[in-house]
Design a protein around this nucleic acid. Structure first.
Length: 301
RNA sequence: CGCGGGGUAGAGCAGUCCGGUAGCUUGCCAGGCUCAUAACCUGGAGGUCGUGAGGUUCAAAUCCCACCCCCGCAA
């Protein structure tokens, strides 16, 4: 099958790789290289790097609406286009161009968590499961008919990174299945629709007045990026892992309850911080952090 | 040339400004003590202070030069 792949971040790479081994990927669309990281050097997207490794032609239009981008897309005469976290709106002329249309790999169990940050929002909301939905694209935001779903459980150890990797892997498997044997499209339910707003850095500051479980969910959802944090002596300290402590406490939110980073949260709950990172330092366990860093019982963060 | 922090015993840090061969916490080993407390006490091992048969100096972890690696911010 002649396939066009459209994607940008790490998440999309396994999907591209799977397609490349099973089909004829004739062209890859991805976001253009952007200044990133220390030094602001121009960095091409993970998908572009993978495509170059696979010797697949790459296109990096800034928009598909401008110029003759749509025409050039149509000229490829593909059988299908697979879209996975591409980052650009596809005009109708693009959606209709391939014989089988455009098929999207989305990292949630639709219609829950349509939109930009489904992985993080699922964990943050305390969902017990997430998954991948393969769907036929239409003009709406993740509103197309569903072709195949796969479920991935979320437990107390599931970080966004872990879920990201699991969903990415599963997306790669499912897209191959769909192309092998096209399932009947199913309309998305009218109920249970939620939207996964893009993650803002301002959300990452921990509010200790919230219940411990909610804070824990945010910590897991924001690991590794942008990482939940609190401020101490003007220093930003990121928290990458924590454990809800099953005890009744009576202390002001943010109070340090012992010498091993048990912190008072809202509703008389408590959270034990277990993995943190100081500015300029590596991520480390609470016990390591405390060997060279004073944060004693009774103080408040 | 985007801004900035850091590389010192297994681990986490101090010491660097005001040069004089290294210290704290923890871990480890040995012994003791304890109902219990990340328990406590005593003794011990463990470091070419990122690299350079570099520069300065009587003397460099500390000052100068070059390079390598890690990380934070911003994007």
């Amino acid at each position: 099958m002649k396939v066009i792949f459209m994607g940008t971040p790490d998440f999309s790479v396994p999907v591209l790789e799977a397609l490349a081994t099973h089909h004829d990927v004739i062209c890859v669309y991805t976001q253009p290289p952007r200044p990133a990281g220390r030094g602001n050097k121009l960095v091409s997207s993970p998908v572009q790097q993978a495509a170059e490794r696979l010797n697949i032609p790459v296109r990096t239009p800034v928009s598909l609406r401008k110029g003759n981008a749509t025409q050039e897309f149509q000229d490829l005469q593909a059988d299908v286009a697979i879209v996975c976290a591409y980052g650009l709106i596809l005009p109708q002329g693009v959606l209709d161009a391939p014989k089988m249309g455009c098929i999207n790999v989305h990292a949630s169990l639709l219609p829950r968590w349509r939109g930009a940050a489904p992985i993080q929002r699922a964990i943050e909301a305390g969902d017990t499961q997430s998954g991948v939905t393969i769907m036929q694209m239409d003009a709406g935001l993740d509103t197309g008919d569903m072709l195949l779903k796969g479920v991935v459980p979320i437990d107390e150890n599931t970080t966004a990174q872990v879920l990201h990797d699991a969903l990415s892997k599963q997306g790669a498997e499912l897209i191959i299945k769909v192309l092998e044997n096209m399932p009947e499209p199913i309309k998305q339910p009218e109920t249970g629709i939620t939207y996964a707003e893009k993650i803002q850095k301002t959300e990452a500051l921990i509010d200790w007045s919230l219940p411990a479980q909610q804070i824990k969910n945010k910590i897991m959802a924001f690991n590794p990026y942008p990482a939940a944090y609190f401020m101490l002596n003007g220093e930003r300290i990121k928290v990458f892992n924590a454990q809800v402590e099953e005890i009744e406490i009576n202390a002001a939110a943010g109070e340090v309850l012992d010498n091993t980073l048990l912190i008072a949260c809202g509703n008389n709950t408590a959270l034990r911080l277990t993995q943190l990172q100081r500015e300029g330092k590596k991520r480390m366990s609470a016990s390591d952090l405390l060997k060279g860093f004073e944060l004693k019982k009774g103080s408040t963060i």
